Amino acid sequence: MVNETYFTVWHIVYATVMIPTVFGNGLILYSVAKFPRLRSNIHILIANLAFSDLIVGAVLIPTDMLSDIFGWKSKKYVCLACLGFFVLSLGSSCFSLLLVSVERYIVICFPFRARTLLTKPKMVFMISFGWVLVAVNSTLPFYGVNTFTNSSAECVRNVVWPEAYQLYCDWILICGLIVTFTFYMIVVRIALKKARMRNSIGGKTEYNVHTKAQTDLHHVITMVIVLGTFVICWLPYVILSFIVTFWDTPTFQFVKRCTLIPGLFNSAINWLIYGYRNNELRKAFRTILKCKFCNKDSNRPTSNAAAIYTSGNSVF
C-alpha cells in the first residue's frame, strides 16, 4: 500500500511537471523556428536551453513513468537509459547556461566585434560540442561503467553506477555551476559599469532604459535569474547525491528523492521567465496562441505576426 501511494504521488508530480514543460519549451522552440527575428545568438541559446528542458518533459519523465508502471527498470538497459537521460538533460542545461554567459561576456566587452567573434557557424560548433560531450558522459554506463546486476533491487545511481562515476558526475556539475556563476558575476559587474559610464557621459542621474548599455544589462539580469533558479532548484539534489555516495541510508535516499522535485520543476518554469522578461518572445507567444485559439482567419495571423516584428527594438 505504501509503495502504491508512493508511486501514485510521484506520477502526479510527474504529470504536473510534464504538461507545462512540454507546452512552454515547445512554444519557445516553435517561436524561434517561426519568426526570423528570433534568430539572434541569444535566442538560439535560449532555444538550446529549452530543448534541454524539453527532454525532461518529453523523454525523461514519460520513460520513467512507463518503466515504473510496467516494471521495465528491472531490465539493465532500460534502467541505464533512464539514468542516462537524466544526466543528459541536466548536463546540457548546465552547459547551455555556460554558453549564454560566454555570449553575454563577448557582446558586452567587445560590442563592435561580437558579430565576427560569434558567427552562426561558431555558435553551431559550440552547441554541437556541448551536446556531444554531455552525450558521451551520459552513455558511459552503457560501455561497461556500471555495477548493474540481475539482483539489483532498485534502479538508482548509487546501486547501478560505480562510486567513481557518481563522483565524476557530481563534480563535473558542481564545477560547471561554479564557473558559470563566476562568469555571470563578472558580466554583471561589467554591464553595470558600462551602464553607469554611459549615463554619466549623458549627464543623467537615472538609467536610460533605451540605451544599449541598459539593454545589455537587462539581458544579463534575465540570465542571472535563470541561472539562480537553476542553482536553487538543483543544488540540493546535487549535494544530497554527493552525501549519499559516502553515507547511503534510507533516510538520505528519501530526502534526495524529494529534492528532485524542485529540480524537475525548474524545466517547467524557465519558459515563464523568458516570457516575462523577453519582449520579443512574449509577443511571439501571444501571436502564436492568438493564432491557435482566438483568430478564425488562418491567413491573418501571419500578417499580424510580421507586423509585430517590423517595429521596435528588442528588449530582453
Rank of each mutant, 00 (worst) to 15 (best):
V132I: 15
F112D: 12
M123G: 07
G130M: 00
N199D: 14
P111Y: 11
M126A: 12
I178F: 15
Q214I: 15
K204L: 10
R196F: 06
T215Q: 13
F142R: 12
L140N: 08
F125M: 05
V188P: 01
T222W: 02
W171D: 03
V188G: 03
L177M: 12
F181E: 08
S89T: 05
S138Y: 00
S89W: 00
L140Q: 07
C155N: 08
I178R: 06
T222C: 14
I201T: 12
V224F: 04
F95V: 05
V209G: 13
V226N: 05
S101Y: 12
K194H: 13
W131L: 02
V124W: 05
I127L: 02
L88N: 01
R113N: 07
L192H: 11
S93T: 02
Y207C: 02
F148Q: 09
E103N: 08
S152R: 06
R157S: 03
F183G: 07
V156F: 01
L99D: 00
C175T: 02
G144V: 11
R115Q: 14
F95S: 04
V209L: 12
H210P: 00
V102F: 03
L167H: 11
F183V: 05
M197W: 08
S152E: 06
V107M: 03
K194C: 10
K122Q: 09
C94I: 07
Q166F: 03
I178Y: 08
D170Q: 14
N146D: 15
N137W: 05
Y168D: 01
N150R: 13
C175M: 14
I178E: 09
C94N: 11
G91E: 01
T222D: 10
Q166A: 09
L217K: 15
N150G: 13
R157M: 04
F86C: 04
K193S: 10
S200D: 15
G176K: 06
V160K: 04
P121K: 07
E206L: 13
T116V: 05
I186Q: 13
L97M: 14
M123S: 07
A195G: 06
W131Y: 04
I108L: 09
R198Y: 15
V226E: 05
C94W: 03
L118W: 11
L88R: 00
N146V: 01
L173N: 11
T139K: 02
M123Y: 03
S92H: 04
F86Q: 02
G228I: 05
P121L: 03
L167K: 14
S138Q: 01
S128A: 07
L118Y: 02
C169W: 01
Y184T: 02
A195H: 07
T139M: 04
G176E: 02
R198L: 12
M126D: 03
V87W: 00
L217E: 06
M185R: 15
T205K: 15
C109E: 03
V100K: 04
I186Y: 10
F129K: 02
E206Y: 13
V188R: 12
R115H: 13
N199M: 15
V160D: 05
I178C: 09
V107P: 00
H210A: 14
M126L: 07
T139W: 00
